[in-house]
Design a protein around this nucleic acid. Structure first.
Lengths: 226, 226
DNA sequence: TAATAATGGCATACTAGTTGCAAAGCTACA
DNA sequence: TGTAGCTTTGCAACTAGTATGCCATTATTA
């Protein structure tokens, strides 16, 4: 799925390795940087989901990194977590004003840091209407589906159908429900047509080789995405 | 893509070659000059993106080059990086006052120098409303499009259309959205007209040989630039 | 075995691509 | 200012391509 990339820029200390390890453990692909300048240089080519950095970095400090990122259309969307030594209220407010998503004291435990990072990725995903399920990524706004990072071309109806099912995993949708939600109330189309679309969707998702990997048939009831 | 030109004027030492090589490595086209006068002479014909020079140059020194450049409307836009031996605070302030974009000690590493150069080009691009996408360069201010460094003549509408699409890559624009943004709210023009303009734009961008290299059709939805 | 689902094929409807043309706009020159 | 010649633009008509819905057939499930 293209693991989520996170840039980690913290001063040398015992925690840094712990945090690095914990983030990797949670499935992030971690890239470590030393200075603010290093961060700015590296993101030109490769935009990460989140930057987790200390406020006091050499060359360009964390505050300045925030400012730079918010100036740029493409980089605005990166989530920013900022740690300060002895964070006072004024620091925290300043951080938020500069566009950071989280600002807090560097004394916080590695565990909490990871938890906050995960919470932030979740929030960012929701903001983008992005659904990630195993090796699938479904982007509502971009009207795009990626499997293993590769684009799958879906037609209009196929996309709507997939998005409906995936937006409430485990929920069983009856055919009439699907018809109403995908085609709209007024349109009148046979129930059986849903089957055909499910079939076409399954094909494109590659369910021939691994049957029912994504879409499960509930005999006599409907379909569900799992 | 019209490689970015950079003028390099540093005194002879082991670093100069390293910096030269590193800049070329990063895709710049490097032109070396000896004296401040050489720099001034050469830029009349061929304006570089950036001048990276030492403050102590023979004939005309770096400080004077800064002054000259900032006097000239056309040359103002060139980015200037100035290195000083034993840079004191007063030097640094003087450099910025004379219009340099970066001033620092000549002891800095080649790697950092390159990183700063790249950061400066990025800044300059944003300031010029320049969009670079693969072999395309779109300059809003100059109302110009280059492909592989060669100008492509676009009509007014074609340019607006391209700029709209390219300014938000990956975003899908519906035909009505395009109409509103390119033609304005009041004008009433058929949706189908957008297709015709897309076709003409594609032709000029050379999409006959490589279909959908730039502009992708999303059936039933709209178009997007990728 | 009866009901339900999956599948393949096909006609149709819809959407996008393409072309030619006329009108409007622009430029240069007398 | 007028006019000839060129470019740009919008549209309609046509062609090409794609998506969709349904039916008939086969497979699966309870």
């Amino acid at each position: 799925m293209g693991e989520e990339k996170i840039i980690l820029a913290l001063p040398d200390n015992k925690d840094r390795n712990a945090i690095n390890a914990a983030l990797r453990q949670s499935g992030y692909s971690v890239i470590q940087k030393r200075s603010g300048q290093d961060i700015l240089d590296s993101i030109v080519e490769d935009i990460p989901e989140i930057i987790l950095m200390h406020a006091d970095l050499p060359k360009v400090d964390g505050w300045q990194v925030c400012e730079k990122l918010k100036e740029d259309q493409l980089l605005q969307k990166i989530g920013i977590i900022l740690c300060c030594d002895d964070a006072h209220e004024s620091d925290i407010i300043r951080g938020f004003e500069l566009g950071a998503d989280e600002v807090f004291d560097a004394n916080v435990s590695a565990r909490e840091l990871v938890a906050r990072t995960q919470a932030l990725s979740r929030r960012l995903q929701i903001a983008k209407n992005l659904i990630k399920i195993r090796d699938l990524e479904i982007e509502l706004d971009a009207h795009r589906v990626l499997k293993d990072g590769k684009t799958i071309d879906l037609t209009y109806i196929q996309f709507k159908l997939l998005y409906l099912l995936a937006s409430r995993r485990d929920n069983i949708f009856s055919r009439s429900e699907i018809l109403e939600r995908v085609w709209g109330k007024k349109v009148y189309v046979t129930n059986r047509t849903v089957d055909v679309h499910i079939k076409r969707l399954r094909e494109k998702l590659g369910e021939i080789r691994y049957p029912s990997q994504y879409i499960q048939t509930i005999h006599g009831v409907g379909y569900r995405f799992m």
